[in-house]
Amino acid sequence: MLRSEPAPRTNRVPIWIVAPKGRDAGLLRTALMESEDDIHISDKPATLAEALSRPEAVGVLVLTQEALGETVPSLSDFLIRQPAWAELPLILLADGPGHVMPALEKLQAALPRTKLLLLQRPVQISEVQSAVEIMRLSRERQYALRDYIERQDRLRRELNHRVKNILATVQALYGLTLRNADDLRQFSEVFQGRLAAMSKVHEVLYANDYGQAELGDAIGAVIAPYTGEDRITVTADASLLVSAEVGQALALIVHELLTNAIKYGALSNQTGQIRIAWQAQKDFVLTWTEVGGPPVAPPRGPGYGQTFITATMRGYGGKAEFDYREEGLSVRLEAPLEAVLR
């Protein structure tokens, strides 16, 4: 039967040994000389006090009864200050329980915050190795719990951040739509369309764990219902990964342009076409070009769509240019590349 290789270590566990007497120090050094962990051997209890002042500098602690008395103040303070996930593994080498009870009584308040293992001297090398391995595994499980707690905390903070961003975007869409709506029916129609666009982009971002997403996927989700007749062409000089925030913003811009094209532009008849292209070299540039639609005339003033697009691009240090050519609307979006990739 083949034996599988042991799993690689995920954490190096710092093991501290304080043994004022030479024989114990030599025995412990021999027992642990082949360990993959960070081994620190000292004959001065004061050295341990300095290590205990640094977070997670001590993973497993091995003490002899001679060192215990001097380490009680710093050790007790360390055990009480430990984070909730931690219980310091402590191996104590002693001539017998009676020799260490006075010192342990001084630690009584903090002892529940440690995993204590007492080895009665004389001890064999194999006993020390086995004890250290048990305690090391215990510490690794604690490190795994620490990492899990930290991941959950990051997820909670990220979820809070995302929800706040989504609500802020919805609030902005609501306000701008309301200001530009002629009546409640128009407001309802336009606002629902914009929320639907946000929902489609959200699906793309969710699939990428709200990390970086392919810009083509985000824009593709918005234009998908209108691509069946090959009236919309999308080209890019390279694949472009953007942040969730940027992907959502650019997709909403495309939604605004698409809505305008359906009402007044290239998609309002049977022959118009739209070309979307972008490049990412020194700057990020996206162009939207309509052809074959009804003749275009410049608007009397900027509407919601133009206002939203211009403000969004300014937020990334860029700009939006609108060219109301008679043969079709042309829009050029430009921003520093680092702002889009952040």
Rank of each mutant, 00 (worst) to 15 (best):
V190Y: 10
Q129Y: 07
L88H: 02
L107P: 04
I253F: 13
A213H: 08
R162F: 09
T10F: 03
A51Q: 12
S239E: 15
Q273E: 11
Q281W: 07
Q281R: 15
V291P: 01
L167D: 13
G292P: 00
V18T: 11
I41W: 00
E229V: 02
E56H: 09
G220F: 01
A49L: 07
L145E: 12
Y316G: 06
I262P: 01
D37N: 14
G301R: 10
E70K: 10
R179D: 14
Q212L: 13
S239H: 07
T307K: 10
A261V: 11
R194N: 08
R275Y: 04
T177M: 01
W16R: 03
L155A: 14
L286G: 01
L286C: 06
P20T: 06
E338D: 10
L137S: 13
H202R: 14
Q186K: 04
M198A: 10
S199N: 11
K44P: 03
L116W: 02
L107S: 08
Q281G: 12
A197C: 13
A86S: 12
D283T: 07
V242T: 00
R162C: 03
A131P: 00
Q152D: 05
F191A: 05
F322E: 10
P225G: 09
G247R: 08
V291Q: 10
Y316L: 15
Q65Y: 03
A244Y: 06
K200P: 00
S130R: 11
L137E: 09
Y174R: 11
P97M: 11
L173D: 06
A238R: 15
P294K: 01
I232V: 12
V204R: 05
T289E: 10
K200Y: 09
V58T: 05
G315Q: 12
R332V: 05
P89G: 03
P336K: 11
Q120W: 04
A110H: 00
L68A: 07
I262R: 15
P89E: 12
R146Q: 15
S76T: 04
K263Q: 14
L250R: 13
A86G: 00
E56R: 11
P102A: 12
R121Y: 02
E245M: 12
P45V: 03
L341H: 07
N11D: 14
V340F: 07
A335I: 04
A172R: 14
I276T: 02
D323M: 13
L155E: 13
N180Q: 14
A181N: 09
A109M: 08
A144V: 05
P97H: 00
I276P: 05
T235W: 02
L61V: 02
A67S: 14
L286N: 04
L178E: 06
V13Y: 01
P299G: 06
A196E: 14
S53M: 03
E87K: 15
S130D: 09
T259M: 12
E203F: 03
A251T: 04
Q279V: 09
Q212K: 14
A213E: 00
R23N: 10
R275W: 06
A221E: 01
A103Q: 15
G193Q: 09
